[in-house]
Write a protein that binds this DNA or RNA. Structure first.
Lengths: 245, 245
DNA sequence: TCAAAAGTGTTGCTTGTACACCCATGT
DNA sequence: ACATGGGTGTACAAGCAACACTTTTGA
């Protein structure tokens, strides 16, 4: 803010600001993202990230929470919201200068039809499909979604975020599935469980169990920390690197 | 962008957007940040981060580069610019709704008077001093600067960013000083040098040497990678953790 | 008795840390 | 000779990957 001398009027342009949400979940063995079908121009009938304009006196995170609630029907306090950053290319929206602040939201495994009010036409789609083509999503949402997935991957690695993908109570297998799906690599169940349980304040047993169709009942766990607590040592740096080749 | 039905006019508010720069360097054995003294209200005579309003048709990163050049006189392509995110609290600027997109810039050890044109009144200050009091800096620049320092710390850990703090040619000792100053902990010179030289594409010898007042001449190195290349395994997770207690 | 989930143990490898010790150079 | 910057070796601990083996449980 070095406007020591009032700059010429043309330098103080006004723009509109939206928030866009990359809402990720793990469903049917794949990482999925919530998309809506646009009803208006521009990009009418294209798929896009949910989002909308910020309102008067409304903070960015508040706007994101409001949109999240409108799109998914979920109370945002249960979900993890991280700001990804601002996307402000002058050409990103044909309607004019519109800057978007993108947020990453991690959702637990929700029932298939998203029950939100605005959410007519909202659907989950595997990120693999949504990001197969750079122009499949409207605006610059390909960039935003790509950044979101990448951010989710590293957050999984470095924080105790994973339980946010799960229901309040989850089994070791469900927790492991989150990592396997988001990273796209298989993990050793035994070493995984050992690592998780040896990490202080990661998960704790609830005392409950859940019986599968056949087999030994699975122990149910809950998160024992705020989801953004840093995990040390980080999860699995090695296996991910190898898979990247 | 779920404006399926055109929202009422009051929901499509217009705001002004600034870019703010947290420009960090290592000087005199401490991590320092570039600050300007504000000449106008609000916060007249307070210290603040350099920055300014974005212009018509100008991308966010372009605006950051322009401001960086105006404030430091340096060509931004030499410096590392990372977006920290958008700061959009409705109350953050008393002039009205102004959203700021903050960038982190890493500067090499520059000569003391910053030679930029707008840079009259710009000065380096140890982050320790600048962040001693939450209200020392104007606006929400305390938050921005805090986030910037934290980001610099983790980037140092996980990428090959460190040489950007140094002159084009640097000694092992100078490179090590960057880590020691940014992290605030001493490092073992021998293990540090081993780690750096065993990491492929981190630094390479220039063939030049530099003789100190007395003692063996130091070997000069250059960066051998783009500065945002990820460093694996990461630098020194352990020592930093211990120092945090 | 069988399959699913969980738990234990072991080996080999990589990395980080601490520290003893050696080398090179110019005043 | 000596301080300064550089470099090697080595012993110890921590952590991870792979994998063999055992245990618990309910249909």
């Amino acid at each position: 803010m070095s406007e020591d001398v009032a700059p010429p009027r043309r330098d103080r342009i006004f723009v509109q600001v939206t928030v866009d949400l990359a809402i990720l979940t793990v469903r049917d063995g794949s990482l999925q993202i919530l998309l809506i079908r646009r009803g208006n121009e521009p990009y009418q009938d294209h798929l896009a990230l949910p989002g909308g304009f910020i309102r008067e006196g409304e903070g960015l995170r508040d706007a994101a929470h409001r949109e999240l609630h409108e799109e998914t029907g979920l109370d945002g306090t249960l979900l993890h919201l991280t700001q990804l950053g601002a996307y402000g290319d002058p050409e990103r929206d044909p309607r004019g200068r519109i800057i978007s602040v993108a947020f990453l939201a991690i959702a637990p495994h929700l029932p298939s039809p998203v029950p939100g009010s605005d959410a007519v036409g909202a659907r989950w789609m595997p990120v693999e499909s949504a990001l197969a083509d750079r122009t499949f999503l409207a605006f610059d949402h390909y960039e935003i979604a790509t950044d979101a997935v990448e951010r989710a991957r590293t957050m999984l690695e470095q924080t105790m975020l994973a339980p946010v993908f799960c229901a309040p109570e989850f089994t070791m297998g469900e927790l492991r599935e989150v990592y396997e799906v988001v990273w796209g690599i298989p993990l050793d169940p035994r070493n995984f469980a050992r690592k998780v349980k040896n990490t202080p304040d990661f998960v704790k047993e609830t005392g409950h169990k859940r019986s599968p169709a056949i087999g030994r009942p699975a122990i149910l766990y809950t998160a024992a920390s705020p989801s953004d607590a840093t995990l040390y040592p980080a999860m699995l740096r090695h296996a991910m690197r190898e898979a990247a080749e």
